[in-house]
Design a protein around this nucleic acid. Structure first.
Lengths: 244, 244
DNA sequence: AATTTCATGATAGTATTACTATTATCTTTG
DNA sequence: CAAAGATAATAGTAATACTATCATGAAATT
């Protein structure tokens, strides 16, 4: 596992203490050659995100990406053995980034309930701006996750790929949320299912508000965040106090 | 729209009254030629369900299906213009079947809360036996929906296909559930989002309990049904009375 | 300065997919 | 019995998802 530094605007000290806690990493078997290790690799990541967003993962090919970045199909294959692995890589980085944001937003928050609420906010919000100034555009990557993430695990190879560790980031984020739920209400019987429902459900509600508005209440004003915070508060029997 | 009779063991009178209410139908543009209208058509449906379950939708091809049913690839193309349309057809029939079960299980139930609970049971349960004795195996079809349904709408063509009416059955089921939620609690602000979360979330929990057990509490004893009934009761502030 | 290494590029090739088109054959119905 | 309609067989196409080989150019090593 290679530790992957996310360049957020933090001072070094804070970053260090956070990183020692969470170790953001992408399982190294996902790629053949680390795309962060070269200029071409970074261009592959940057433009694959843009291309997949534009034409959809199904129509996306390494050949088209090659044309886009002025490079050769065969060169891209030296980094990723298939477009499926590329998707796995991109979405892993997304979940790693969300986990980082979650740890950052919730550390040093003393009240467990406020902490949970902040966690749900981070997980369910619409990403509006490209926070980091790297080759990865989080706004676009978020759209890809909404539109394509399910395809990365709805395969006949899930079980073997799960064993290889390709979904650790996703699962760890959900487990983190699950633990926060349990801290707020020790007697609640389904913390993991609630957590996985929030993470998956948020993606789904974001999708619905763009394509199936008749089966969601979410829109630009009523956000998935509001829906899931309200839901969680009710499910865990939290008395809403006046404070936001 | 051609009305599609589901051969359940019901007396004709009851069936008539139910059908007049719900009109179970598959949008006819989904297929080129109605597969119910011929023996070959029915074999296509029956064995496509089995084959997709066996090898997964991604590896499924009309050529392989042709070999399986001792027919020719080109003949299958006379019924469906693509395997994507076939998926749309199969899943539409699934949702139509669930809707039918839902209407059947909830009609004449006077108490709104009991009605909602029964509806959630129908939507979230594991299908254990092949109820009908047609060419469609609902147990296997249910597995296909769990593993492949998302792929039918996570495409660049969703909006145009939605306009063509390919997702009406799915949306109508969710709207039906949404209405039941509102009847139980008129003040609840997110009935549609709750309904879509239950339907999608149930599929997801079923998937998780087969492949990612560490992020769900569901298993053979703790069913997705229990989780979602408990969740809904809490979200809608329903006081649990002793009666089951 | 020569050489080895290494990353990338170019080209070719393969099996499969997702179809379309045409023609032949077989079955049903008038 | 003939015509119509359904199905089967065959061929063909462009694209996909790769693999393999060889060339080139730049950087690092000797």
């Amino acid at each position: 596992m290679i530790v992957l530094l996310l360049s957020l605007q933090l001072n070094v000290l804070k970053m260090d203490s956070l990183l020692s806690n969470i170790k953001i990493a992408v399982p190294d078997k996902i790629y053949i050659k680390d795309p962060e290790s070269s200029d071409l690799g970074k261009r592959i990541i940057e433009h694959s995100i843009i291309l997949i967003d534009e034409i959809g993962f199904d129509s996306f090919t390494f050949k088209k990406l090659g044309v886009r970045i002025g490079s050769n199909e065969s060169s891209i294959y030296r980094y990723f053995e298939s477009k499926h692995k590329l998707l796995l890589y991109l979405t892993s980085r997304y979940w790693a980034w969300v986990e980082y944001q979650l740890v950052f937003a919730t550390h040093n928050v003393p009240d467990d309930n406020t902490k949970l609420t902040k966690a749900i906010e981070v997980i369910t919000r619409t990403i509006k701006e490209d926070v980091t100034f790297t080759h990865i555009n989080e706004v676009v990557l978020n759209r890809i996750v909404i539109n394509e993430y399910s395809k990365s695990y709805l395969t006949k190879e899930v079980d073997s790929e799960n064993k290889e560790g390709y979904f650790v980031l996703y699962k760890r984020l959900i487990r983190r949320l699950s633990e926060m739920i349990t801290k707020v209400n020790k007697d609640y019987q389904f913390p993991s299912s609630l957590a996985s429902t929030i993470v998956e459900g948020a993606l789904h509600q974001h999708f619905l508000k763009s394509h199936f508005i008749s089966i969601t209440d979410c829109n630009d004003k009523v956000t998935p965040t509001k829906f899931f915070i309200n839901l969680t508060q009710n499910v865990l029997n939290i008395k809403t106090n006046g404070s936001k």
